[in-house]
Design a protein around this nucleic acid. Structure first.
Lengths: 120, 120
DNA sequence: GGTCATGGTATCCGTCGGGTACCAATGGTC
DNA sequence: GACCATTGGTACCCGACGGATACCATGACC
């Protein structure tokens, strides 16, 4: 629907992260982010609780982790499930879209780890 | 590999983006960044001048572009060449390392552009 | 009653992104 | 000679954001 009504030649028929007004720019900003890349990667192993994520993403503060997870949830990359227990239990998992997004992010992470010695 | 003492199966904990103290974390922070990803991608077409980059990366301010380029240069991803002319001419180009880093970043950018319609 | 665990939130602060204005240097123009 | 245009920035200012710490609510457990 969004694509069919766009006339040929219009600015939005060619999605590009290089266009400031394109939604792609916002998505790139979300994914091209340290904590997002790490969070999505951590969730590749399966659903995880807040505390477990916090332990895996060394150095992340609870506030920032919450913000990151909420932002990913808001954009449909992560699913948040709250269990009515005490102490509270919250599980985060990848959506289908999130799992797909993990592919390029995993490439980026592994490229960094494999080429870190080349950096000055 | 530089750290060849790690036995198979044993994770080389010294090279992981999930360790706060690992230099990988810093590199991920540099690459997993909106403007870095866009700048490196723009330079894939060949050396470009400051003004041309500024035009391609719609919405970037000169200060932020300068900061991004300087940071990329500092980490050996971008080469900066100043020509003693008036008006001044400065050309930015990818180093070999920068060109390699473009591969996973290009995947990320194209994934975003191809999947933008799936986002809520 | 006191303590612990969990998943956050409230608050504060420093840093940083980001925008705008402006500059240096010189060749060209009038 | 005076003035302007061009290019690649820098100076300055501001708001937003990242991030650390403190704290909370709740019930099980000692």
């Amino acid at each position: 629907m969004a694509t069919s009504s766009a006339p040929a030649g219009a600015c939005d028929d060619r999605k590009s992260v290089y266009l400031a007004a394109c939604p792609c720019r916002e998505m790139l900003d979300l994914l091209a982010n340290k904590w997002s890349a790490l969070t999505l990667g951590a969730l590749e192993d399966g659903p995880q609780r807040f505390g477990a994520l916090r332990a895996r993403l060394q150095g992340v503060s609870p506030k920032v982790l919450t913000q990151t997870l909420r932002r990913l949830e808001e954009h449909g990359l992560v699913h948040r499930e709250v269990f009515a227990e005490v102490p509270p239990r919250v599980e985060y998992s990848l959506t289908e879209l999130g799992a797909d997004a993990c592919v390029p992010l995993a490439h980026l992470r592994s490229w960094v780890e494999q080429n870190i010695d080349r950096f000055p």
